[in-house]
Design a protein around this nucleic acid. Structure first.
Length: 536
DNA sequence: TACGGAATTT
DNA sequence: AAATTCCGTA
């Protein structure tokens, strides 16, 4: 039917009746979902999961990234926040105060401001949901590229939009991921092997089968991001109801396939992560299931926290043929570098070695990118210091935290005063986007976050002749990858350092205190809390 | 402008 | 868990 509602707001939002006034633009739908209709032809739609706010395990309310996506999808907020042209998944907050205001309204936090909102966004860095585009004010980027690219190699994103290339009906292995619902809880550990059910794979048909070899490499996803993903998937499924199981419980919904976004009116913006297939009928091919949150890269092949579960344990469930795996890993590697992810994200695959394929990123390139490892406990202090030399600190891992070498790359140039000034000139009611025509940028950008290099899949089935992955720059060539120093010794880190640390600290209540870094020491515990309390 | 620690709140 | 609130530092 139609949905008239233009904005949907999660009902949760306005649940608080008292605040409802504050939350005005709400309209609710029964279920809560939202969807906006294309207004004026200009509306964009996102997959339902993007709107689903409720049911987030950890937080019952809408999450900021959901909200951001929501705004991004509405043309009426184009002057406030919009997809950055030229960069897939990148968006610019044109009016920080306004965005903050909107967010505050949504959360019924009148005191919200950009400073706070941005803090929340920064928390997403570690979750790999977002990263900051350096050098560009108020510009952030969702990480779905990782997801999309590596997982959907056959998809090419061209300036004109995402085009399902040859859209093989059965995508490659990557597309076979199903993100089974991990249990919502189990913060750590536990990954069920069943995650990638064979059944689903079957759906993909094709080669899945056989493989004697399939090493199921499924790493465990235990990362926070995984959770996000999972959540997204769950949401989707629940919404679509198709799902097999009941809605209520996603617990066992093994078969969630990647969602196909075939809804009409998908976001036309090429830069939108939700680009859709132009082809109505087969739109499904492209579906990038993205949960922006997804840090899939890391997630998929992430460390395995649960010792007990070997990545390969579930061989039965997930099938990858070695080659695919190889490619996959490789692309993961690319993503890691491109996104400054820690190599930790690579699982150790006993038999698998990630060959230095022709990934664009070559050593030199790698040098260029900063591998962002979690900073040592000392916190910011340390971080600065390292930069002097990019060095990869060969620091032997200390017992606790492997002190990963942190390579810092300076933003080559920043540019971009940005369009702030222009924001007003928006225009566009023309829906399809297009405002800001030429923001170019791309190439030049320092590339700190260069476009994600698209992993090269040598044998990629897809034919994609035409395109070039946007990202790839080719680069030079070659120095065989020598990963400088880091083979991986510290790969052992089972979890991101930061998280690890966090845990440690959190472990003991008392622990968190001082000790960590000097700065922290000074901070008295008291005042602030009291104040806050009082305030509240 | 950004980052991120710490304490609190939801 | 996911913010929110403060705030020092860069």
């Amino acid at each position: 039917m139609m949905l008239k509602a233009t904005h949907l707001v999660p009902r949760s939002l306005c649940l608080l009746g008292a605040f409802s006034s504050a939350c005005r633009r709400v309209k609710m739908k029964a279920g809560c979902s939202i969807v906006e209709k294309p207004e004026g032809g200009g509306g964009y739609q996102f997959p339902d999961w993007a709107y689903k706010t409720e049911s987030s395990p950890g937080s019952r309310q809408i999450q900021l990234w959901h909200f951001i996506l929501e705004l991004l999808q509405k043309e009426e907020f184009r002057h406030v926040i919009a997809w950055q042209q030229g960069e897939y998944g990148e968006f610019v907050i044109k009016d920080p105060d306004e965005v903050a205001r909107l967010w505050g309204r949504r959360k019924c936090k009148p005191q919200m401001n950009y400073d706070k909102l941005s803090r929340a966004l920064r928390y997403y860095y570690n979750k790999r949901i977002l990263h900051k585009t350096k050098g560009k004010r108020f510009t952030y980027k969702f990480n779905f590229n990782k997801l999309v690219m590596p997982n959907y190699p056959f998809i090419n994103i061209r300036s004109s939009g995402v085009v399902p290339q040859s859209a093989p009906p059965v995508p490659t292995a990557s597309s076979r991921f199903h993100f089974p619902p991990l249990d919502t809880h189990s913060p750590t550990g536990d990954v069920q092997p069943g995650r990638f059910s064979a059944g689903s794979l079957a759906a993909s048909g094709q080669e899945s089968g056989n493989g004697a070899e399939r090493k199921a490499e499924l790493p465990e996803l235990d990362d926070g991001s995984a959770a996000d993903w999972r959540r997204g998937v769950d949401l989707l499924s629940s919404r679509s109801a198709v799902g097999a199981g009941g809605i209520g419980h996603q617990k066992r919904k093994p078969d969630i396939m990647l969602p196909l976004f075939t809804r009409p009116g998908m976001y036309p913006d090429p830069h939108s992560p939700f680009a859709v297939s132009p082809l109505p009928g087969r739109g499904g091919v492209l579906n990038v299931p993205i949960s922006p949150a997804l840090s899939l890269t890391p997630t998929i092949f992430s460390y395995s926290p649960s010792p007990g579960l070997s990545p390969f344990a579930g061989s039965g469930c997930f099938s990858f043929n070695p080659e695919e795996m190889k490619h996959y890993l490789h692309s993961q590697a690319c993503s890691v570098f491109n996104y400054h992810l820690s190599p930790r994200t690579f699982p150790r695959y006993p038999g698998l070695v990630v060959p230095p394929l022709q990934c664009q990123m070559h050593p030199e390139e790698s040098a260029q990118f900063s591998i962002k490892l979690q900073p040592p406990p000392a916190g910011r202090k340390n971080r600065e210091r390292v930069e002097s030399s990019e060095e990869s600190a060969p620091v032997p891992a200390p017992p606790v935290a492997p002190v990963p070498p942190r390579i810092k790359v300076e933003p080559a140039s920043d540019k971009d005063p940005e369009s702030l000034g222009q924001l007003a000139r928006e225009e566009e009611r023309s829906q399809e986007e297009g405002p800001v025509p030429g923001r170019t940028t791309e190439e030049e950008k320092g590339t700190l976050f260069a476009r994600p290099a698209v992993p090269v899949w040598p044998s990629a089935p897809v034919g994609t002749p035409s395109e070039e992955p946007l990202e790839v720059a080719e680069d030079s060539e070659d120095r065989p990858g020598r990963e400088p120093n880091a083979p991986e010794k510290k790969e052992d880190a089972l979890m991101p350092p930061k998280l690890r640390l966090k845990r440690r600290w959190n472990d003991g209540p008392g622990a968190r205190q001082p000790s960590k870094n000097g700065a922290a020491l000074w901070r008295g515990p008291g005042p602030r809390g009291l104040a806050a309390a009082a305030d509240a």
